[in-house]
Design a protein around this nucleic acid. Sequence first.
DNA 1: TTAAGTGCAAATATTTTGCTGTCAC
DNA 2: GTGACAGCAAAATATTTGCACTTAA
Lengths: 150, 150
Amino acid sequence: MPLPQTEAPGRLQSELMSRGLRMTHQRRTILTVVETAKQHLDAAQILRQARRLDPGIDRVTVYRTLSLLKRHGLIDELDLMHMQGEKHFYERRPQRDHIHMACLRCGKIAEFESDLFDRLKGQIQRECRFHIVVSRLEVGGYCAECRASN
Amino acid sequence: MPLPQTEAPGRLQSELMSRGLRMTHQRRTILTVVETAKQHLDAAQILRQARRLDPGIDRVTVYRTLSLLKRHGLIDELDLMHMQGEKHFYERRPQRDHIHMACLRCGKIAEFESDLFDRLKGQIQRECRFHIVVSRLEVGGYCAECRASN
DNA sequence: TTAAGTGCAAATATTTTGCTGTCAC
DNA sequence: GTGACAGCAAAATATTTGCACTTAA
């Protein structure tokens, strides 16, 4: 009996299992949703999508799983400058940190990787003697399209 | 009749007045609390301190005033890596942006200014053609003291 | 004078907790 | 078999809204 959501095992699932955590059907479903998301999802959206794969899944299980993934550093929690209320958004932790740019006019979220960002984190670690575990750089402003169409 | 909280008019109060907004007693009180805070305060702490100056002040007024100040770019809203639940913290917008470092062990918040940070924002504006209005860089990790005492 | 602002009550939004039954290992 | 996990209900936390009264300008 093939489980469709195991077709793309991804890193999250194997990471969790390698840490000795139980791989339940619900966790597998939530991991699949997060891993295959095309955009940043909040808890309510993750619940909705997970219920399409497993209608019985509970909201609380989503919160507990997101919390677990966050504790293990497998996902990052974003605020996206609080443009849409106070919800949090989640994404798989990337290989290399990136910056989130939130357009205050059209709401689009763009991402950007930068050597300067990596160097800045290095500077913080050295000069402040601060060991960075997680970092989040979000900027709010106006994207090229919105600036042009003003 | 001298109003003690007007003794340090600061920038916030004159900024608001220069924008044609009404300077009520409650706003003056809240501005004073935010301007003279020694650390980052959340809405509940701001309410508590404001009530010491004006016992009748309402929680809703605090929220509405913080929202106003935020809209006008006079204060910044921080999450401090969600270390203490999901509350938000507020600080007067500084002349020059700084980074917030939150120690995951002792909870201390340190601040850091950096040319690299300024250059990174410049790079984002140029290369992404994104006009930055507000930015927030928060890092979570372990401070020098906590690393030493492990 | 009067529109903006305040307080109060209630609602909304988001996340967490306690407990009992279930399932992964 | 058993301890970790899920579901359900309820609570906790944080913030917002509607409306009538008050006040700054």
